[in-house]
Amino acid sequence: MNKILKYSFIDLIRSNWVISYTAFYFVATFGLLVANGDISKAIISLLHVITILIPLISTVFGVIYFYNSRDYIEMLLAQPIRRSTIFLGQFLGLVLSLCFSFVVGILIPFLVYGVSVSGYLLHFLYVLVAGILMTIIFSALAYLIALLNDNRLRGFGLAILTWLLFAILYDGIFVLAMIKFEEYPLDKVSLIASLFNPIDLSRIFIMLKFDTAALFGYTGALFHQFFGSNLGVVLAGFALLVWCFVPVLIILAKSNQKDF
């Protein structure tokens, strides 16, 4: 698996896609730092990057990468190695290269701006970890969708739809439900509902770690309490890990049954 991972990773980080993706982060992060002139503001500005852009790019890239490497996968299938090894190796190569882009692209500008001595190091790490988890979750979902759909157009459409679902539709239904049931106590239900969307989960988690927490006021007290406690952090982390592992496990199961 390590060998597959290694060569997929080398292949990917040499690709123009990944190079431009890294360059984009690099430029965008420097831009945010210069425009905000303030590390904590720049970190919070990264929130949109993490909750919208990373899922979108990971989704699109995950689908394209799978379809583009189908023939390569066939070649690997002719080698004396197990399927789980091939798919896990390839998938991890993909995730690793996307994470590499993201981490390198934002880490260098922040280090240059002195994040390590700014007192916001922990916040920055939260954002970094959230970005990595988003990358894993959405490239896994995309990879799985591509694996299940031989029709590329259909696979691509479904992947974009998945992104839309988590990035927009889920919140839309969420807000409508809140308005519909406004007379009921909603904080517990909202808290639970936020666990079922990795984007909402990381968005809320990060906002609560920043000044924006004050905007939540007393109505968001339950969220404060939950995400402020060790149990809450562990549970939120656990929920995100479930989001990472479940698609990967399905990838492994499905890839074992698939004909190429």
């Binding site: 060569y7 997929s8 080398i10 292949d11 990917l12 040499r14 690709s15 490497s69 023939d71 390569y72 066939e74 070649m75 002719a78």
Partner: peptide, 9 residues
């Protein structure tokens, strides 16, 4: 294989 493609880079 009939069509064989390897990592492009």
């Amino acid at each position: 294989p009939q069509i064989s493609r390897h990592p492009e880079n």
